[in-house]
Write a protein that binds this DNA or RNA. Sequence first.
RNA 1: UGGGGCGUCGUCAAGCGGUAAGACACAGGAUUUUGGUUCCUGCAUUCGGAGGUUCGAAUCCUCCCGCCCCAGCCA
Length: 565
Amino acid sequence: MTISNPSDFIRDIIDDDLKTNKNNGKVATRFPPEPNGYIHIGHAKSVCLNFGIANQYNGTCNLRLDDTDPAGESMEYVESIINDIRWLGFDWGDRLYYASDYFEKIYRLAVELIQSGDAYVCSLSPDEVREQRGTFTEPGKNSPYRSRSVEENLDMFQRMRNGEFADGAHTLRAKIDMASPNIVMRDPVLYRIKREPHYRTGAKWVIYPMYDFAHCLSDALEGIVYSICTLEFENNRPLYDWIVTKLIAGPRPRQIEFARLNLSYTVLSKRRLIELVENRHVSGWDDPRMPTVSGLRRRGYTPEAIRNFCAQIGVAKNDNLIDVALLEHCVREELNEQAPRAMCVLRPLRVVIDNYPENHVEEILCANHPQKPEMGARKISFSRELYIERDDFMENPPKKYHRLGPGREVRLRNAYVIKFERAIKDEQTGEVIELHCTYDPATLSGPPADGRKVPGVIHWVSAGHCVPAEVRLYDRLFTIENPGAEEDFIRHLNPSSLETLAACYVEQNLKDAPPGSRFQFERLGYFCKDAKDSTPEKPVFNRIVPLRDSWAKIAGSEDSKNKSR
RNA sequence: UGGGGCGUCGUCAAGCGGUAAGACACAGGAUUUUGGUUCCUGCAUUCGGAGGUUCGAAUCCUCCCGCCCCAGCCA
């Protein structure tokens, strides 16, 4: 499902600009994450948009770390961001930039702003600034420091930089309009004093530019043409334009806002994600249940699936809550094509084929993909003792159940038709612990000769030829559709978002599967060998996504019928 | 109710005055050694509401209603 000609309102704007030769045909974007957390699927939407546009129009997309607030920023995050965007399949050439590399230039531009009388050093406390800002319906008051002379402002700003003042003692503010109906324009703070070591500039600076000042100037310095950001910055656009027209002579970037991604049954705000990690509700940023790029990668999602997802959801200005089923659809779509099939028994039930010769082993050739012979075949051992899924036997099955039960026959996938003979139960608990069956030797590669129909097919492994594995079954992290809208979202964590099955068996061929390799375990879903926790003795497989299961729906409705009777 | 933005199927989303694309989801059916895949079929006489302009409106105008964002020295 590759969308050949992506189109959206942003690309429409670019098409128009190109048609009128507004920017001499130049297309330059940037992806500007702050390195204070791992990027998630919502960032991926922006990455695909910005890099996608650059690729489509033969332009460029810079990667810029927007590191203007040292609190919480670190090289670890920078590295993860770089790694994740590369993994997603995008390239910025040698255009890796840091806002912190522009600190000196930005400082000089601030001086220019002071010199033109468009900025002043304000000595109000944070509380006073808040009080004097006014409200939605009342204008703010001019700061008493608004009329400081250019000379005094220059001197004060220099001394701010020199570290002569305490944190928060003064700020540099733009002189705009305290009565503006747009609160962003009421003399916004441009610089603050903050004695916090910066992960890149160390202790060199004690003043740091605010986002509104640094971002637009960084864009302009890099020659960005389209500064694409999310809707909540729409109010800031007048300030963006104000700063840039005051300070930049040449071509100026244009800010365009689009709606950020919201995903059902998950949270995407950085604050909430951090809370999940720090309070150990998940194992880390790369917990396979996390919507982070690293979490999705570990879960087994492919870059292609994520890119397709981003193409599918589109780009618009409507607030949205995308059904996570669409994301799941995108992985299934790709993995159905790409993933070799294999067999794995999650909850083993021992089966003895009474009429199969003891100590006999035969090798059965199994196609790696039923529709793609070019993907080859592998051998699987078949013997008298097997494991099947506990779910595939029922003592009192409903009519539509196509598997094993009293008097029933079933096809073993890629192998013989077997018939149920008797069940052996634990004397204490009554639990079925072993099945005895007989097989029809004439059914290895075709249906029974007498024409009888065997509708059911189940998977299996040979007891003496399989390898023990741990399988982790993941489900959505939250039980409600929009946990992001809840104050106490933790309360809605899904208690069964992870089910660990420690005693599974996978077919022998998976013994040395490379870490990160993906398979379809037939009839179950798509799985990925966990790169972190697998050991040579015991591989661990993460369930990426289950197969669509129309039986579950039938069984579910049967179940509810029975309950209502 | 100061400013900014948005309202088209359950969820996304095309549509840009000529008579509602597509995807996911959902529901049927066919094929099937995965109750998978694939393949058919169905799924908005209607575009937040009400007026108006027009031969003709989701598209233009007016009013109304609803939702989101903004009062960090965060981004």
